[in-house]
Structure formats: structure tokens, C-alpha cells
């Protein structure tokens, strides 16, 4: 019980700090981006070649960009404190609706990609553990997949499954079929990393004195694995699976671009191009909450499992 309360407090404290730092940094970075904010917003609204000085000045007046950055940040903070995420600078509409729609779509992707990557990671990790040669293969695969940019994996899948064989759509959003390639791209990357952790954890747990002792006692191999190896190997694997969840939530930024998938990542990139500060800030808050939660889950689950396995 105590552990749950500690985890909750830890999560809240970390969340508060991270969100405050992230939104301030985001705001500052947008302020520091080259170019005139009013012009960029006008270009996002009307296309760059339709922006005349009058159109730009109208945006400047409408959004009150003559006020200092600190005043605008404080005003925004006050609106958020009242539970309102504000309105988009580009569309003029409340950011909450497009934000929740994008969040839902990203979660759809991750809901498929994460369990898939965990299952594949466990399976391959298990198959690749045991011998030093297999472990070397696991390390190689892990390195290759971490090194391969997401868009390379994504484009390879598109050219095979969408263009060559016409089995799946190349991009867009519609039914479940549109989720296959982007979530596969997301899953492939983290599956390889999880497999590596599983393989190394199982290997090192296999060498633990308690496991050797269990074998000496004459326990069967299955029993040794289930009762002694798995409990020892579990904490780092579970922790890494949650870290993998966090990295999938950030990995969507690139993958959603490749697949023109209208989730949080695409919304974030579009909003940065358009200098849509309220939207960027809202996405930053949301991603911060999600990622801090994943990391807290990773830590507390590792702690819990370590305690229960007696390490």
C-alpha cells in the first residue's frame, strides 16, 4: 500500500515539474524560431503566396502578438489553470477537440504496436537467449533496429505491402486496415530492443547462484525457468517494456508523417510549422503526462517485482 502511495506522489511531483519545464521550453523555442510568427500563422491559414502585408498585420492584431512573450505565456498559463487548453492560433477553434481526436488515433496505433512488440520481444528474446552466439545475434538485431530510422522501416513496408502487393493502404486513416503498417513499423523497432533485453536478462539470470542451486537440487529445466529464472529476469524486462511504451509514444512523430496518419505526432509537426503555440503547448502537456506516467510505471513495476522476487 505504501509503495502505491509513494509511486503516486512521485508521479505527481515529477509530472508537475516536467510539465512546467516542458511548456516553458516549448514556448521559448517557438519564440526563438526564425521568422515572423504572424506571417507563419497567416501562411498556414491561407498558403504563403496569398499572404500580403495586410493579411499578416491582421493576424498580428487578432492574436495580440504585440504583447510581450512573458505576458502571453502568463495569460496562457492562467487559461490552462482554469482547465481550458485555449484556442488554435490557426483555426481559431478550441484545441481540445482536435487534440482528443488525435490522441485517440495515436493510442489506437500504440494499443496495437505495444502488445505486439512485447509479445514479439519476449518470443525472440527467449529464442535468442541461452548461448553466447544467439545472444550476439540478439545484440546485432537490436543494434540494427535501433539504428534504422523509422522512415526506412516504414517506407520498406509500404513499398512491399502497399505498392508491390497492394495488400494494405500506403497512408491515411480509415478502418483497422490503416493501422497495420504504421503500428507494424512502431512495433518492429521496439520488439527488437525488447528481445535484446529479454535475451540478456534471461542469460544473466541463468547464471545466478540461486538458479545453479535449483538445478543442483535436481529440479526440472521447466521448473527452474519458471520458478527461478523468470522472477529474476522479470524486473528489467517489465521496466523496459514500459520505457518502450514511452518511446513508442514519441516515435509516432516520424511514423505518422510517413503514413500521413492524423495522430498526435502529425498534429505536433503541423502545429510547429504553423507556429500554433496553444496547440503545441497542449500536445506538450499531453505527451509529458503520458511519458512521465510510463516512466513511473516502469520504475514502480521494477521496484515491485524486485521486492517480490526478493532481490
Amino acid at each position: 500500500m505504501n509503495a502505491v502511495i509513494i509511486a503516486l506522489l512521485l508521479w505527481l511531483a515529477r509530472l508537475g515539474a516536467v510539465v512546467t519545464i516542458i511548456v516553458s521550453l516549448c514556448f521559448l523555442m517557438v519564440e526563438l524560431l526564425p521568422g515572423d510568427v504572424a506571417f507563419q500563422i497567416a501562411a498556414a491559414r491561407h498558403d504563403i503566396e496569398r499572404v500580403t502585408p495586410a493579411v499578416r498585420n491582421d493576424v498580428y492584431r487578432e492574436l495580440g502578438l504585440d504583447r510581450s512573450a512573458m505576458v502571453r505565456l502568463a495569460e496562457w498559463g492562467w487559461t490552462v489553470a482554469q482547465g481550458d487548453l485555449g484556442r488554435s492560433n490557426v483555426s481559431g477553434e478550441a484545441v481540445a477537440a482536435p487534440l482528443s481526436a488525435a490522441l485517440f488515433r495515436t493510442l489506437q496505433l500504440v494499443a496495437i504496436a505495444w502488445p505486439t512488440s512485447v509479445l514479439l520481444g519476449l518470443l525472440f528474446g527467449f529464442l535468442l537467449s541461452g548461448s553466447t552466439r544467439r545472444l550476439a545475434i540478439a545484440k546485432l538485431l537490436g543494434a540494427l533496429s535501433s539504428g534504422a530510422p523509422a522512415y526506412v522501416i516504414g517506407l520498406t513496408l509500404v513499398s512491399l505491402f502497399a505498392i508491390q502487393w497492394r495488400l494494405l493502404p500506403a497512408a491515411g486513416y480509415g478502418g483497422l486496415i490503416y493501422l497495420v503498417l504504421p503500428s507494424a513499423t512502431l512495433a518492429v523497432r521496439s520488439a527488437a530492443r525488447i528481445a535484446l533485453i529479454v535475451a540478456t536478462s534471461l542469460s544473466s539470470a541463468g547464471g545466478h547462484p540461486s538458479v545453479s542451486f535449483a538445478r543442483m537440487k535436481g529440479l526440472g529445466e521447466l521448473e527452474v525457468t519458471l520458478k527461478h529464472v523468470f522472477p529474476l529476469a522479470a524486473p528489467p524486462i517489465v521496466a523496459f517494456a514500459f520505457v518502450g511504451l514511452a518511446s513508442q509514444l514519441t516515435g509516432v512523430v516520424i511514423i505518422e508523417q510517413v503514413f500521413a496518419y492524423p495522430g498526435l505526432g502529425k498534429l505536433l509537426v503541423d502545429s510547429v510549422v504553423a507556429r500554433d503555440v496553444p496547440m503545441i503547448q497542449a500536445i506538450a502537456i499531453l505527451l509529458a503526462v503520458l511519458i512521465v506516467s510510463c516512466n513511473t510505471l516502469a520504475e514502480s513495476s521494477a521496484r515491485f517485482l524486485s521486492l517480490s522476487s526478493g532481490r
Binding site: A162, A170, G172, A260
Partner: peptide
């Protein structure tokens, strides 16, 4: 779809 290459791939894939 703002990326021109993605648009082209969608036509090639029949989407």
C-alpha cells in the same frame, strides 16, 4: 497529405 511523396505512394498503392 502534406508530403508530396506520400501522395504519390497513395496513388501507386491504389488508395
Amino acid at each position: 497529405v502534406n508530403d508530396a511523396e506520400t501522395r504519390a505512394r497513395m496513388l501507386e498503392a491504389g488508395n
